[in-house]
Design a protein around this nucleic acid. Structure first.
Lengths: 372, 372
DNA sequence: CTGAAAGCGCTTACAG
DNA sequence: CTGAAAGCGCTTACAG
């Protein structure tokens, strides 16, 4: 392998001169520069970045922790992130907790050992906040709270909830089923606010529906990594709907809890992630139900599924580009000034916990009825 | 930052002893070992991997070049790859050519500068074979030919073509439309074989349909990165179908070239990637066509779209896990013995060009008719 | 089995 | 503006 030393020898100059030329820093006379460049060309010299990394204590790589790329949501997020990080000269190191059955601890350990410069955390974690704050290296969180000193970026899920509630109320929905992750996500973690901002969508939606007197219930599936789990849950849901529609002879009490079966309006709206919504469209077809006449369906996320699900889905779109931009700029800040706390720049797009809030929007598709 | 030197000092031993303990290599007496371990614990010593990298000339990272993660096919591939690479203690460095508008040259340069140990190439490239073979560092190709010395892994697309032809023939299809990438992909590149193995699917399918006397045509869309391009192409296709179905008044000659419009059977089968198939289902619904009675739809790839497209798609499934396993083991070989050429182990699952061929399978869904 | 020494390839103060 | 020197933090021959 040809190194700087060889170039220096060939050009008849010192090591440092070569270094200055390679890095285009400092002043080197035209003459020297040319001789060095010529020597580099002749020897086909390629700088070894490893040595630079060691000296600088940096690798230029950011670990992005997600559960799995198989879920279009994370694929889209990572895609956007890679583009943004690249603009800051940072590489994206893929860290999936489910795809490689490696816990996040493995990646945190790599962060500690300087194999990456920082971590963007977008996967579930059981570690408490002090685990994350004690790492002492750059970490930024997406859609979850990891501790006071760790910046968070998330979508405005409350707005999502309001937009969807509005759509449902105005289109005359009478019985809404929300399909989402495990109920345990709704639990507080001391702070009085859940660490899973996403559940705020369902909470806000639920409150609004309550206020409008619209019946609603929540069906929990497995964790986000289990895409098939969603399919099963939606499948079972429709079987149940069949039962309730085919008369009051339903033996199970699953279709209602606090009212006599007779008076319960049939389910006429299903709400959940894009995956849930896509499955719902499929089941509706299979069960001979007309969408949106018999049942309205509203997705959440705005991934490619929203346009590939057999019908153009009405969805809440998360703004992946803006999210990625914010995450990237937070991690760049953290990498550049490791000691600086949050740039408390009194940004009004932050919530009480100081999270960076990105707006969402409602995209009307063909799976909802026109509003009154 | 606390380094090995500090640990050595604290434990009262030499640097090398600490190194031996950290690496669990060589023999160290129990006593020494304990003292060192204790010191490491007390000082909270964390080895700096950067120094190791420099010494070993390795980073433990493999670059995976794909066009974009936004396409479920590549998301699934990368997901599988990450899992496999992790089993070999290798990290996955995401290198998207479209997401970060960075050409592959940028990543090859990083490979050269030792920022990664090898590259798995799964994106389109305009560079000729000798560009790739001249890199002189580990490269493995997925689904494309990059030169004699570069190992290739691909699915058995010919088999895919046969399976689909069989399905179409037996179910009585009369007019098949294939929707795929730009026609230019079909061109030879000297070697007498296209560098895009995927087109072999369409070629084989076409030959078989010819043999069975079934009419077929090819509609070209933009490059794979342009998912919306597929949607548009399929949309236009259905508009054309409407026209041809509503009588012979079609002014355009697009629907046929070598026969009078009158005698052409209406299109009753659409074949393409999962994305194409999903769009086709959607358009069929929108146009009031019954699937599979009026039109059969067959996808290719077997990504999550195959189960989220409004109907369970009949698809050719690529075996992502096996593909990832093969790619990973090839790159591991290449990294470990840089000079070794192909392990010419006379594997019978290789084609003439020496590619490693992985079987595909047909998954029957609800978008095809029963076979005779 | 343990310690002093050289070195991985590059950078950056620091004298000339 | 250029050159000799020390050092990034760790590893591995090589003597003891």
């Amino acid at each position: 392998m040809v190194g700087m030393r060889d170039v220096a020898k060939k050009a008849g100059v010192s090591l440092s001169t070569v270094s200055l030329v390679v890095n285009a820093s400092g002043y080197v006379s035209q003459d020297m520069r040319h001789r060095v460049e010529q020597a580099m060309r002749e020897l086909d010299y390629i700088p070894n970045e490893l040595a630079r990394n060691l000296y600088r204590g940096r690798t230029g790589m950011i670990g992005v922790i997600v559960p799995t790329l198989r879920h279009p949501f994370f694929a889209t997020l990572v895609s956007a992130l890679q583009g943004r990080l690249a603009k800051h000269e940072l590489q994206t190191l893929l860290c999936s907790t489910a795809d490689a059955d490696t816990g996040e601890a493995e990646y945190v350990s790599r962060l500690r050992r300087h194999m990456m410069d920082g971590i963007i955390m977008a996967a579930h974690t059981d570690h408490p906040a002090d685990y994350w704050t004690s790492i002492g290296r750059p970490v930024v969180a997406f859609d979850r709270t990891l501790g006071d000193t760790i910046a968070t970026v998330r979508s405005d899920h409350e707005r999502g909830g309001r937009l969807v509630a509005d759509q449902l109320v105005k289109s005359g929905a009478r019985h809404v089923v929300m399909v989402g992750g495990p109920r345990s996500q709704f639990d507080d973690r001391g702070e009085g606010a859940t660490t899973f901002p996403t559940v705020r969508y369902f909470q806000t939606l639920g409150e609004r529906l309550d206020a409008a007197g619209i019946r609603h219930e929540y069906v929990a599936c497995g964790p986000v990594t289990d895409v098939e789990g969603y399919a099963r849950a939606v499948h079972m849901l429709f079987d149940r709907l069949d039962e309730s529609r085919s008369g009051g002879s339903s033996g199970s009490s699953a279709s209602g809890s606090d009212a006599g079966n007779g008076g319960i309006p049939p389910v006429d709206a299903i709400v959940g992630s894009d995956v849930v919504a896509a499955c719902a469209v499929k089941e509706a077809f299979a069960h001979g139900l007309n969408v949106p006449r018999d049942v309205q369906i509203i997705g959440y996320d705005g991934t490619c599924l929203a346009d590939c699900a057999g019908m153009t889905l009405t969805v809440i779109k998360q703004d992946f580009d803006t999210i990625a931009e914010r995450l990237a700029s937070h991690i760049v800040d953290a990498v550049n000034e490791p000691n600086a706390r949050d740039h408390a720049d009194a940004d009004d797009s932050k919530d009480a916990a100081g999270a960076d809030i990105v707006p969402v929007s409602l995209r009307i598709g063909d799976t909802t009825r026109p509003v009154a």
